[in-house]
Simulated scan of single mutants.
Amino acid sequence: MARSRKAAPALDLSARSFWPKSTELVSLEFTVTPPTDCNLYPQYTTGLHAWFLDQIRQLDADLSAYLHDGESEKPFSLSGLSGQFVSHSQSLQLLASQPYQWRVSGFSQPTVAGLAHWLRQLPDEIGLKNAPLQIDSVQLAAPPMTYAKLLRQGKQTSGSVSLSFTSPTSFRRKGHHLPLPWPTNVFHSYLRRWNHFASKPADPDAFLDWVDDYVIIQRHQMESVKVAAGKRGSVTGFTGAVTYGLDRRAADPPEFQTLFYALTQLAPYCGTGHKTTFGLGETQLGWQSDQAAPEVPSMQQVLAERIDELTALFTAQRQRQGGRRAQDTAEKWATILARREQGDSLQEIAEQMQLPYETAKTYSKLARRAAQESHSP
Results as ranks from 00 to 15, higher is better:
residue 2 A to F: 13
residue 4 S to I: 10
residue 12 D to Y: 11
residue 14 S to A: 15
residue 15 A to Y: 05
residue 17 S to Q: 14
residue 18 F to S: 07
residue 21 K to W: 09
residue 22 S to F: 03
residue 23 T to M: 10
residue 24 E to A: 08
residue 30 F to A: 10
residue 36 T to E: 15
residue 39 N to S: 13
residue 41 Y to G: 04
residue 43 Q to P: 03
residue 44 Y to A: 12
residue 49 H to Y: 12
residue 49 H to F: 11
residue 49 H to M: 02
residue 56 I to C: 07
residue 56 I to S: 06
residue 64 S to R: 02
residue 67 L to N: 08
residue 69 D to Q: 15
residue 74 K to A: 12
residue 80 G to S: 12
residue 84 Q to K: 10
residue 89 S to E: 12
residue 94 L to N: 01
residue 96 A to G: 09
residue 98 Q to M: 12
residue 99 P to S: 10
residue 100 Y to Q: 06
residue 100 Y to V: 07
residue 101 Q to C: 12
residue 102 W to A: 11
residue 106 G to Y: 04
residue 108 S to Q: 04
residue 109 Q to C: 09
residue 114 G to I: 09
residue 115 L to E: 05
residue 117 H to G: 05
residue 118 W to H: 10
residue 121 Q to P: 06
residue 122 L to R: 05
residue 128 L to F: 08
residue 131 A to F: 00
residue 134 Q to D: 09
residue 134 Q to A: 14
residue 136 D to F: 00
residue 140 L to C: 08
residue 144 P to T: 06
residue 146 T to W: 08
residue 151 L to P: 03
residue 151 L to M: 14
residue 153 Q to H: 14
residue 157 T to W: 00
residue 162 S to E: 04
residue 176 H to D: 08
residue 180 L to C: 04
residue 188 H to K: 11
residue 189 S to Q: 05
residue 194 W to N: 07
residue 197 F to E: 13
residue 200 K to C: 12
residue 203 D to C: 03
residue 211 V to S: 07
residue 215 V to L: 07
residue 229 A to E: 10
residue 231 K to L: 13
residue 232 R to V: 11
residue 232 R to G: 10
residue 234 S to L: 01
residue 241 A to M: 01
residue 244 Y to Q: 11
residue 245 G to C: 02
residue 246 L to V: 03
residue 248 R to W: 13
residue 249 R to D: 14
residue 251 A to H: 14
residue 255 E to P: 01
residue 255 E to H: 14
residue 257 Q to Y: 00
residue 261 Y to F: 14
residue 261 Y to H: 12
residue 266 L to R: 03
residue 267 A to K: 02
residue 268 P to Q: 01
residue 273 G to P: 05
residue 275 K to Y: 01
residue 279 G to R: 02
residue 280 L to G: 09
residue 282 E to V: 05
residue 283 T to H: 06
residue 283 T to L: 01
residue 298 S to Y: 08
residue 299 M to N: 11
residue 304 A to P: 08
residue 304 A to Y: 03
residue 308 D to A: 13
residue 308 D to N: 14
residue 313 L to C: 06
residue 318 R to S: 15
residue 336 I to H: 01
residue 340 R to I: 13
residue 341 E to P: 01
residue 341 E to Q: 15
residue 346 L to F: 02
residue 347 Q to V: 14
residue 349 I to D: 08
residue 349 I to R: 07
residue 354 Q to G: 07
residue 355 L to M: 15
residue 356 P to T: 10
residue 358 E to W: 11
residue 366 L to H: 08
residue 369 R to F: 07
residue 372 Q to H: 09
residue 374 S to T: 01
residue 376 S to Y: 09
